[in-house]
Design a binder for these strands. Sequence first.
DNA 1: GTCTATAGTACGATAGAC
DNA 2: GTCTATCGTACTATAGAC
Lengths: 184, 184
Amino acid sequence: MSAREKVLDSYQAILIEEGERAATMDQVAARAGVSKGGLLYHFRDKTAMAEALLERARHLLEEDLAKMAAAPEGAASYYLRGSLLQDDPLDRLLLAAMQLAPEHDAAKLAAYREVQEGWFRLIREEVGDDAIADAVMLMGDGLYWNASMTSTLGDAPKGAREAGQARMAGLEGVLDILREAGRR
Amino acid sequence: MSAREKVLDSYQAILIEEGERAATMDQVAARAGVSKGGLLYHFRDKTAMAEALLERARHLLEEDLAKMAAAPEGAASYYLRGSLLQDDPLDRLLLAAMQLAPEHDAAKLAAYREVQEGWFRLIREEVGDDAIADAVMLMGDGLYWNASMTSTLGDAPKGAREAGQARMAGLEGVLDILREAGRR
DNA sequence: GTCTATAGTACGATAGAC
DNA sequence: GTCTATCGTACTATAGAC
């Protein structure tokens, strides 16, 4: 893997595990196995590094939108399942992006709102109602938020995966109720 | 108002408007109209200041739980309405607490989980189903998350309140669907 | 392309006057 | 109870060798 990629991975990992304040250029460089000078060859300042991470996110989000459109279980189920944060690359990237300092909020929001519109459109199409689609989107956001509150605590307790699946089963039931209501 | 309270208010305001990184002791002191030395008389270090803010939140959250139990429109509606962040003191406090550095995550989470359980119990009682109560809670979390994503951008556009009310009307409809389903 | 050395700054916190 | 002055540290970023 290129040093550039390794730096970006380290930046992302530290953001998730220890938060924005811990993601100093020293720490990122050390974790990536390069010196600070080496890091600064690839990213001329910290802002450039953050923007590269957001650029990564933008690409993965676009891919995800295509997958969602093709998901056999339906857009709504796909969306909620994706929000459960099962450690896939997109989840980790979004979790890291969320930690970015408010200085990057404008870029963050622009990138996020863009795909959020796409998600909404697909879910709206499936459930047939604006308010219901809004509710489904909010449930997904809520799942993300819960995950981001706990992500920095390094807790992946034993039963986490099982608990996540049980939770998802319950939410699937709620989705069924909403889908049926939307058809009427 | 006491200087101590003024400091805490300033800390909270800066956290919301400019994020955690901007909330330095210099900035907080300046906004509160005291010197850094003056500030440090009331809070011996930054951690103490953050904990005082969380303590404030804990009190307001307890009060809110009592209000929710007595809400005529029902716990679920009250909860979602409260998550729309109409600038009341509790909303602002939670928004600020959310910005606190991950060093305080343990305290944050403990305080939050405590009342979250209380909220869940009330909503569960109203809607009559675990999964539906979970979904309602998530919708509220999603609303908070959306608000926190935009709060640091200082945007309170003209039609914001009206848009919020229209959105709430839609979500009330979804709640009706879920309440009815829960009764069966 | 990656390193060391270092300049410059901002932050948290202490000491002591008033 | 609030101030000014100051110290130590950690961070971003630059300069220049290899």
